[in-house]
Write a protein that binds this DNA or RNA. Structure first.
Length: 604
DNA sequence: GACCGCAAAT
């Protein structure tokens, strides 16, 4: 029989057991020990096997001890405390045991202890091997420990492990995670033989820093250099790059690649694909992926709900949310942000309030500042600016810049100078260095014809050394992403683009369009205002797409800042004249322009 | 006698 006290106290395992038990195999050999350990599915079973091995004499073979440590340290159900107590009983630990301990600590995100284990190893005089460094570098990557990482790189060099491809890949990753991309690239370029993991690591390093265009460039180099067998993880980085760049065609190719090379995806990849389609503007495709998905989890629901919300389908998002509840999944705070933003984007005030209360009372979720942000925005949107202000005052936390900016923007739409000034004052106190906030306030003054305040605000902005963020528009044509900024003349086809722009304007005039020059708050004459307005980046991107895409195909644009109301009106008319669906993603939502109407119902 | 590796997301 196995005693309970032994089960719970590993330190007793040196006490020999005298009583023989019929269910214990006393002829346990090394290989059998491994196969026995492999059958363990939890800590309880492991402890039983542990006892069984002890009874036949623990130090019969150090091999048994090694395997006990590695099973306990590396299994899903394992415990590092327990592994440690076994490890400490080993008289002459080898590099194998040390490596196992380092990996185990790293797996538990206890990178500090992993590094200490390595230091112990050196002090005891155990030589690290080529298995030691990948494990250790991973620990440094998790901690973003640049100093340690560099020191270890030096040791790797001295000990001659620098040619090991696993070590090289780990170095690329470590430097990437520490933000030292240049070092990652150096290691990568010096490699004689690159594996899929090397490419994955270097692409991942660029993805970590948001260098999306480089991710895609590297991905295409990868196949050119003969590395074809990309794996899920590589493609996830690529998909993520497509998502950020709004590169739908490339995302579709990646999807195809996944379909051709893998049999069945896991939920994470499916959700990632769904997110890519939705955030690249193809809501339909994302929706059908969602419906075909088996084993939907919180993340998948979260992606679809906030996706529907950003595309302006508030009601549909709420229906999916109800479905989720029916399936027995418990909502969390993230999903509720999606739900409340669905109400906000759809202008559903009553429903928004209802869900806000339900979140607190029924699902016992404490509202975070994001939830309050949604409600403030929701109230502001429908003109309840004073109510929104009251709510801000009652919030249990200090309002942040997002909250005040939201109120400020509502005050602009509903032309409320008094509250706008209060919102701006609070916003400026937070010192977020956002030039756009000053522009917003000066817009409010401009609408009220208070020109003196307009110029005062602008002077303040300049004195603070702030400027407006340069607005840009991305558009993908033939799997290549083109970027335009206002008045851009750097594109090699700029003559054709400006020619197209003139044609478009000429046709727009027939539809009764006249540029809304109030959007240009510069001290320049009317003619120059018109000039500046006519070459906003979004208009350039539309002109470029009209030249290069076939009739009737949709145009998808990704913007870095909110579009001005002139661009909004302009795009609505273009969608009628050229019979195109134009989908514009700005920082917050999607605008679907079709037949002269926008899905945002003219509120954004 | 032989046990361990790198890259990895929504």
């Amino acid at each position: 029989m196995v005693g309970a006290s032994v089960l719970n106290q590993p330190q007793q395992f040196l006490i020999p057991h005298e009583k023989k038990s019929p269910d214990i195999d006393f002829n346990l050999k090394g290989k059998e020990c491994i196969s026995l350990l492999k059958t363990c599915k939890n800590m309880k079973e492991f402890k039983q096997v542990h006892c069984q091995i002890l009874k036949m004499g623990f130090f019969w073979s150090s091999f048994c001890a090694s395997n006990l440590v590695s099973t306990c340290a590396l299994s899903e159900w394992g415990s590092m405390d327990y592994a440690c107590s076994i490890f400490e009983q080993i008289d002459d630990p080898t590099s194998f045991e040390f490596n196992t301990m380092i990996r185990g600590y790293t797996k538990d995100f206890n990178s500090k202890e992993a590094i200490f284990t390595y230091i112990d190893m050196l002090e005891i005089g155990v030589e690290p091997d080529n298995f030691t460094y990948p494990a250790l570098l991973k620990a440094c990557a998790l901690l973003s420990a640049v100093k340690e990482g560099k020191q270890i790189h030096g040791q790797i060099f001295k000990l001659g492990f620098v040619e090991d491809v696993f070590v090289q890949n780990s170095l690329i990753n470590m430097y990437g995670k520490c933000g030292l991309l240049r070092h990652s690239c150096e290691v990568f370029e010096q490699m004689d033989f690159k594996t899929v993991a090397s490419w994955s690591a270097i692409i991942g390093a660029h993805a970590n820093l948001g260098m999306w265009a480089d991710c895609i460039r590297l991905f295409s180099n990868m196949s050119q250099e003969g590395c074809w067998r990309a794996e899920e993880s590589t493609l996830v980085s690529v998909l993520s790059a497509c998502t950020h760049l709004g590169a739908l065609d490339l995302g579709k190719c990646t999807h195809g690649y996944l379909l051709r090379n893998l049999s069945g995806f896991n939920v994470a990849v499916e959700t990632c694909l769904m997110d890519m389609y939705i955030r690249c503007g193809s809501l339909d495709k994302g929706m059908s992926l969602f419906q075909e998905m088996v084993g939907k989890n919180h993340k998948s629901y979260s992606v679809i709900i906030s996706g529907l919300a950003t595309h302006g389908y508030g009601e549909k998002a709420l229906t999916i949310f109800e479905q989720m509840l029916e399936e027995g999944l418990k909502p969390d705070d993230v999903i509720y942000v999606g739900v409340l933003s669905a109400c906000r984007n759809g202008g559903l005030v009553e429903k928004g309030m209802k869900y806000f209360n339900r979140m607190r009372l029924e699902h016992r979720i404490e509202p975070t500042i994001q939830h309050y942000g949604c409600i403030v925005d929701l109230m502001g949107r429908v003109g309840m600016v004073y109510e929104a202000f009251e709510l801000i005052k009652k919030m249990p936390m200090d309002p942040n810049d997002v909250i005040w900016r939201s109120l400020l923007s509502s005050c602009k739409v509903h032309q409320n100078v008094e509250l706008g000034e209060i919102a701006a004052e609070n916003l400026f106190k937070l010192n977020t260095q956002n030039g756009g906030d000053y522009i917003m306030l000066s817009n409010i003054y401009a609408q009220a014809q208070r020109w003196h305040d307009v110029s005062l605000t602008r002077v303040k902005m300049v004195n603070k050394g702030l400027g407006q963020v340069v607005g840009s528009s991305l558009v993908e044509v033939k799997r290549k992403v083109h970027k335009f900024v206002s008045n851009d003349k750097s594109h090699h086809e700029f003559h054709e683009i400006y020619e197209m722009l003139h044609q478009m304007e000429w046709q727009l005039k027939f539809e009764g369009y006249s540029p809304d020059t109030s959007q240009v708050l510069l001290d320049v004459d009317e003619e120059e205002k018109r000039e500046r307005l006519s070459a906003h980046s979004q208009k350039l991107a539309i002109a470029f797409s009209l030249i290069h895409t076939c009739e009737g195909s949709p145009i998808r644009i990704v913007r870095n800042v909110r579009m001005c109301s002139d661009c909004h009106t302009y795009t609505k008319l273009i969608s009628v004249i050229y019979q195109r669906e134009i989908i514009v993603r700005d920082r917050n939502i999607f605008h679907h322009f079709r037949d002269g109407i926008c899905s945002c119902k003219d509120y954004w």
